[in-house]
Amino acid sequence: MKKVLTIAFLSLIGTIHAQKWQNSFDEAVDLANKENKPIILVFSGSDWCAPCIRLKRSILDSDEFKSYAFSNYVLYNADFPKKKKNQLPEEKLSVNKTLAEKYNPKGYFPLVVVLDKNETVLGKTGFHVKTSPKKYIATLNGFVR
């Protein structure tokens, strides 16, 4: 019984401290307004774009970024997978396409767009292999006024 409670407790702590990617862009905007935080909008091709995969592994999934993002950003991933098994529901894909038309008309992948709570673009960046989570966070923070 102690093991079960310990595992449940550790899972809860991990959930509390992990970054939370919003399921919808509307949820992200609502949360950004509620918590007065900028939105990090990531355009990715999760199953075909090598730089997108590297960005996720080396920056977005790092403990440093997760910890910082939880307290300072609202996160939304506008993903465009190509493999049939990874396809998004049509409604979410439609929202992502609309976001791409507005914020990523040239179709760059990966593209990270920093928005204020009113959906105004504060800055855009991509991914450079030789960057660290700390440097990436500094870049993102440099866009926030």
Rank of each mutant, 00 (worst) to 15 (best):
H17Q: 10
I137K: 07
V121W: 11
L93G: 13
M1I: 04
Y73M: 02
Y108L: 13
L5P: 01
L10D: 04
L55N: 05
E64H: 10
A138T: 09
V112W: 11
I53P: 09
P133R: 03
S46N: 07
K92E: 15
F127K: 08
K3C: 02
L5H: 06
N96S: 13
R57T: 13
T15G: 14
F43I: 00
C49Q: 09
M1K: 07
F143K: 03
N86V: 02
I7T: 08
D63H: 06
A50T: 13
K37Y: 00
C49M: 11
L140F: 07
R145F: 03
V74H: 09
E91Q: 13
I59Q: 06
V42E: 11
S46A: 14
V114Y: 06
Q22H: 09
A69M: 05
P89S: 11
Y103F: 15
A18R: 13
L75V: 00
V129L: 14
R145M: 01
K92G: 06
Y68M: 00
A32K: 09
M1H: 10
T98C: 02
T139A: 12
T15P: 00
L5R: 01
D79H: 10
V129H: 14
T139D: 15
L99A: 05
V74F: 10
E27K: 14
L122T: 03
S11R: 02
I13C: 12
T6I: 15
N104M: 08
S46D: 10
K56S: 11
G107C: 06
L111Y: 10
S24D: 11
D30R: 13
K84Y: 08
E91T: 13
A69N: 04
K130R: 13
S94C: 03
D116S: 08
Q87N: 14
I40L: 15
R57Q: 14
P38C: 11
